[in-house]
Design a protein around this nucleic acid. Structure first.
Lengths: 340, 340
DNA sequence: ACGGTTACTGTAACCGTTTACATTAAAACC
DNA sequence: GGTTTTAATGTAAACGGTTACAGTAACCGT
């Protein structure tokens, strides 16, 4: 075979420094003592030769990739910026790399997820692309994972990071009812089966029930937690002949709320006079929307950071069992009718 | 050595199917004919055994990682969502993986970039962390790269994707001057040396000059193209005793414009009556800011998509020389004083 | 002075693939 | 029918590191 590598290998370094490859490797990984003299020489030779260890070779030999992955539904939302930022900050300090991949239930036509044990040391999962069964299989093989915005199926033992949804949503919707006198509150939900979406619906229903308002299926719209989808869906709803009366919208996340505002503006609704709008997440732009958006502050960057930290704890073989639920709080602004 | 691998290897598949590993490899890579009968058997065995090829081993043997990287200054801005989305979409269709890494001039304390030839097949570069010299070295070794928002140094030959900055900025600033009668226009610039920031400043200066307005150093603020930094900087500027008069702000990007709006609101300025504000990028939320932001529509997702496509063209050994400059256009909204 | 650590280094097997080269049998050509 | 292609497969050498094992020399405690 005539393979010719243009790149300088550990053997070149070893030869040039007059030591064995093992010593070079030990120097690189600092996992065994190397004499000061040899260390200096290696340092010099490595920089002279511009030697960079070949990642795949290290991976193959050491059985670790030094890569973690994050599996997302998609990359359509501003929501992902603080999340990725939190994750990336931790990954960087650990001198790991981060693979970002999208994969969702509808995208798997029998395709396996693009990231997993074959190319990462662990996974942050914020995607419905992996079923409970997939998780069970991975978990059984001891593959490190942390679930984001999704609690672990009871039989498994995978750490998860979520935010408090039900109570805060109940409070938020009760605020619409009790303070602003709303009775016909539309819920712009997220993807079917997505836990945040379901829990927020539970809080929404609880609020209705506690206040003697009947639940109306017609007031549930599926905006997929996406700006553009939410716009489309609400636009269709408003364009539809049979007008369903409503006086407020609880949008399950702020990105979708942007789409909701767009559709309402387009159809001439005044916010909050005609329709109150509230969201969830408190994106950075929420205070600057028109009108400023009343929403729930969810610590998205912290979710990313803590999830990554826990993943690394797992990689270091620390056992973690408890699920983390981060607290949330309502931020009252103009769009619900407050701060006139 | 007692290495014990829990995972199933190509040898297991070969043994189980009664063929050699070479045949299995050929079947996997479909780069040489395999009899239909053997193919069926392999298909069956591989799924029975849940065989997944070990990425690092493939990389090592084939000298390709099937990974591309994108090097970013940071992950602080909503701007990165459409960019990453464009890139990721292409990467996914190519069945590659995407490593997202941050690295900027100030973060390199002698550290090499986290991604490069040792762990990727090519790089999208949107970062000042790599100097022209770094680029020259990489380029000399034939490493595929595409520059984002940065034109290639003259001596090199690296494809780049940028957007048209100078002319559109001149038009935008002239709009402020000629239509809205502004004379004291502040420029909230981006990172020093960042090309977009410099070019937009050039357009800004051209507009002033063409309209007989003297350039005033005091009206240049460095917001780093970041929401929070821009807020801080403008807030300090406004809190400062010696009040510098100004009647408009050209913010070099929309993320920073959000920070600018925040600072202006805080100090009681009315927009656009007291101060006109314009931005650049046309982020998804720009129409929903308060007031709706007049800005320049820059096709960020297309930049990501085209950059990725060109990177893959490079990987397939197509030579690309020309720099791509995508057109931009002004979107007039309320914040400049239009659409009263 | 001597057994036991400890610091440092080298040799070579191994990680799980790809692929150059060799081989055989069947198909195609004249 | 003999020669040349072509299809299908196998053998084994890389790819560039890590690390178990072995060994040597200096150091330590008694």
């Amino acid at each position: 075979m005539t393979r010719r590598s243009s790149s300088v290998t550990i053997r070149d370094v070893a030869r040039q420094a007059g030591v064995s490859v093992a010593t070079v490797s030990r120097y690189i990984n600092r996992n065994a003592p190397v004499s000061a003299e040899v260390a200096d020489r290696l340092h010099q030779v490595m920089s002279d030769l511009r030697y960079v260890p070949h990642a795949a070779a290290r991976h193959l030999a050491s059985r670790k990739t030094r890569v973690v992955g994050i599996l997302l539904r998609n990359l359509h939302n501003d929501f992902f910026v603080p999340l990725l930022n939190g994750v990336e900050a931790v990954v960087r300090t650990k001198e790991y790399n981060l693979i970002v991949a999208t994969y969702h239930a509808n995208s798997r036509n029998g395709l396996p997820p693009p990231i997993g044990p074959h190319n990462t040391d662990g996974l942050l999962i914020f995607s419905d692309g992996l079923t409970d069964e997939d998780l069970a299989n991975l978990s059984a093989s001891g593959f490190p994972m942390v679930l984001l915005y999704r609690t672990c199926p009871p039989s498994l033992n995978i750490p998860s990071i979520t935010v408090e949804n039900v109570e805060i949503t109940r409070k938020l919707v009760e605020h619409l009812i009790q303070v602003h006198g709303k009775r016909r509150i539309l819920y712009m939900r997220g993807p079917i089966g997505q836990e945040d979406s379901d829990r927020r619906e539970a809080g929404y229903r609880a609020a209705l029930e506690a206040n003697g308002i009947p639940f109306d299926e017609e007031l549930i719209l599926n905006g997929e937690f996406e700006r553009d989808t939410a716009y489309q869906v609400l636009n269709d709803f408003l364009s539809n002949g049979k007008q369903v009366a409503f006086d407020a919208i609880f949008t399950g996340d702020d990105d979708a709320a942007v789409g909701v505002l767009k559709a309402l503006h387009k159809h001439g609704y005044r916010i909050p006079e005609d329709v109150a709008v509230v969201g969830f997440d408190d994106l950075a732009v929420a205070p600057f929307l028109n009108p400023a958006l009343t929403t729930v502050r969810a610590p998205t960057e912290s979710v990313g950071r803590i999830a990554a930290e826990r993943l690394f704890a797992l990689l270091e073989n620390q056992a973690l069992s408890e699920a983390v639920v981060l607290p949330t709080e309502i931020v009252f602004r103009r769009s619900c009718g407050c701060h006139t």
